[in-house]
């Protein structure tokens, strides 16, 4: 049962990822990316990490995907977004991707990870909360600063340009 669900989620995730990069229309690509992110969230649930899965759905499927969709619609005009048409670059990209993939598989085969079949145990909400509020408390505060700075920066970028447009 879990294997079937896992396979389906892998198909959704990988297919969505490929579609997000290869779809002809950018809007479709954005929707495919949202589907792919949702698949990743489902994989988190399958990995007994429901907290991370819920977080993924809230942040990615809820916020980032909508943000991307809005940007795509604002920018609009698909014809302005030119694909890289020369085949040499595409070939080089594909070759690099295959090389990285072979390297990853080789690294996996060289390790003894395949012998591990059972998870050691799952993290509880309590553990996550304790870690965030003790060991990772400085990181949490830095993260808050980074988030605030990025939001302010994004707003500033958009706002200055908007005022120039009015004049």
């Amino acid at each position: 049962m879990a294997d079937i669900v896992f396979l389906a989620m892998m198909v959704i995730t990988v297919g969505g990822a490929i579609l997000a990069l290869e779809a002809s229309e950018v809007v479709y690509a954005a929707v495919a990316l949202a589907g792919s992110l949702f698949g990743v969230a489902a994989l988190f649930f399958l990995l007994n990490a429901p907290f991370v899965g819920a977080f993924q759905i809230i942040v990615y499927v809820g916020a980032v995907a909508v943000l991307i969709l809005f940007t795509v619609m604002l920018v609009g005009q698909e014809h302005l977004i030119k694909e890289v048409s020369f085949s040499l670059g595409k070939l080089a990209g594909a070759l690099t991707a295959v090389a990285i993939g072979i390297a990853l598989i080789a690294a996996f085969a060289a390790s003894r990870l395949a012998e591990i079949s059972e998870p050691l145990g799952t993290a509880t909400y309590l553990q996550i909360g304790q870690l965030i509020s003790t060991q990772f408390a400085p990181a949490l505060q830095v993260m808050a600063l980074v988030l605030a700075a990025s939001v302010v920066g994004a707003l500033t970028l958009a706002k200055i340009e908007g005022e120039e447009d009015k004049t």
């Binding site: 990490a49 907290f51 991370v52 977080f55 993924q56 942040v59 990615y60 916020a63 980032v64 943000l67 991307i68 940007t71 604002l74 920018v75 993290a123 509880t124 553990q127 996550i128 304790q130 870690l131 965030i132 990772f136 990181a139 949490l140 993260m143 980074v146 988030l147 990025s150 939001v151 920066g153 994004a154 707003l155 970028l157 958009a158 340009e161």
Partner: peptide, 27 residues
């Protein structure tokens, strides 16, 4: 739970990065 905690931070960072990149794309 370190891995899951780490991923929480990573997702937050990715969201911030996406917001900035989208603003840059708009500009």
């Amino acid at each position: 739970a370190v891995g899951q905690t780490f991923v929480l931070f990573s997702i937050a960072l990715a969201a911030a990065e996406a917001a900035v990149v989208l603003a840059i794309i708009l500009v």
